[in-house]
Simulated assay, not measured.
Amino acid sequence: MSHSNGNDDTRHLLVNGVADAVGFVGGALLGFWLGQLLGLDIFAPGYGIGSLVGIALVGLGGGLGLHGARRWQNSRRSQPSKD
């Protein structure tokens, strides 16, 4: 009885989770820094238009980063195995 299937599933889930996290955080950071370059301070007091646009850029960047990570995962899944 082999348990390699369970280990492969666990490894696959771990790789997917890490890829999702890296994509989301990386994208959010890119959105944050783009906002900084445009002079949008998400930490400014109150909720002015600049803060809201900066927050939207962070959210958009995180979503796009997650989407990119999922596309990367799907492209890896469709490639033939190198066994």
Rank of each mutant, 00 (worst) to 15 (best):
M1F: 09
M1K: 00
S2H: 14
S2Q: 07
H3L: 13
N5E: 14
N5L: 14
N5S: 12
G6D: 12
N7A: 15
N7I: 10
N7C: 07
N7V: 07
D9C: 01
D9F: 11
T10P: 00
T10F: 15
T10Y: 14
T10C: 06
R11H: 11
H12E: 13
L13Q: 08
L14R: 07
L14F: 09
L14T: 07
V15L: 09
V15C: 01
N16L: 11
G17I: 08
G17N: 06
V18A: 12
V18E: 11
V18D: 08
A19Q: 08
V22D: 02
V22Y: 02
G23F: 04
F24G: 00
V25P: 00
G26P: 05
G27C: 02
G27Q: 00
G27M: 00
L29A: 10
L30T: 08
L30H: 02
G31V: 01
G31M: 01
W33E: 15
L34R: 02
L34M: 13
Q36L: 09
L37H: 12
L38C: 12
L38T: 02
G39Q: 05
G39P: 04
L40R: 00
I42W: 12
F43D: 10
F43W: 10
A44C: 10
A44D: 10
P45Q: 11
P45H: 10
G46V: 01
G46E: 02
G46R: 03
Y47E: 08
Y47D: 08
G48M: 05
I49D: 06
I49H: 08
S51E: 13
L52P: 02
V53G: 06
I55H: 02
A56M: 10
A56H: 04
L57A: 01
G59W: 11
G59C: 12
L60I: 11
G61N: 04
G63I: 09
G63M: 15
L64D: 04
L64G: 04
L64K: 03
L66R: 05
A69S: 10
A69P: 07
R70Y: 13
R71H: 09
W72T: 03
W72I: 09
W72V: 06
N74P: 00
N74M: 13
S75E: 13
S75N: 13
R76Q: 14
S78P: 08
S78C: 06
Q79L: 15
Q79C: 04
S81M: 13
S81P: 06
S81Y: 13
K82H: 09
D83W: 14
